[in-house]
Amino acid sequence: MAALLKVDNLTKHFGGILALDHLSFEVQEGEIYSIIGPNGAGKTTLFNCISGLYRPDKGSILFSGQELIGLKPHKIAELGIARTFQNIELFSHMTTMDNLLLGRHIHLRSGVWHSLLLPWRKSLTAREEVAHRARIEQIIDFLELQSARDQFVKSLPYGRQKLVELGRALALEPKLLLLDEPSAGMNTEERQDLFFWLQDIKEDLGITIVMIEHNMQMVMDVSDRILAIDFGKKLAEGLPEEVANHPDVIKAYLGEDEHESAAVARQ
């Protein structure tokens, strides 16, 4: 199987702080790959490097063999990488529908010429628009967002907003989906739904998922493989059970003090 995403020796400084420290890993096509680690471990920095918002100091990020470093975010989106954010980044004064339509931006033709200067070709634009809306309706049905369709997203509850953001990412029809804490702020029921949706996204839509997630239950249930990082460095990588039982991972989560962690383990 070919690696869809190959991160090699990725390094990123912020002043004196080393956010990513020669990090290397590969994500295979069709898997759900979770990244875990304590707060400040560099997980979101990694996502920002992949989606082009940050420029790393060193290393390389290959997506289907193409170097991403140096590309602008919009270019990376056009290659088929979509993402969500930890703190929800939506177009909050637009409806759910309009947010999802914006997710299809890269698939739209330049509407200025078609709808303003060439009004006689309006039928063509209209047909295109119908096709795009049909795709969006599928996503809305899939994520059960029907009741939110025409509401302004800022008026939706937090969990629904997270879904709209996921929907917008799907609207881009990505090959790779980066999810930054998709279950944060969700209740148990919403989390349950999300679990099934992620499975469907992977199996039915064939989209590879890289996910940052703090809820260990979720991570253990849904992931094919897990990467644990701390201080921007790889701690462990492998199948969920392997990583969860890795001594370095336990140490990173429970603290450096041997006695303390032993005490925690006894309880």
Binding site: S51, G52, L53, K72, P73, H74, I76, A77, E78, A82, R83, F85, E89, L90, F91, L102, G103, H105, I106, R168, L172
Partner: peptide
């Protein structure tokens, strides 16, 4: 930011 990562 959301505009940028959506290809704008």
């Amino acid at each position: 930011m959301a505009a940028r990562i959506n290809g704008i």
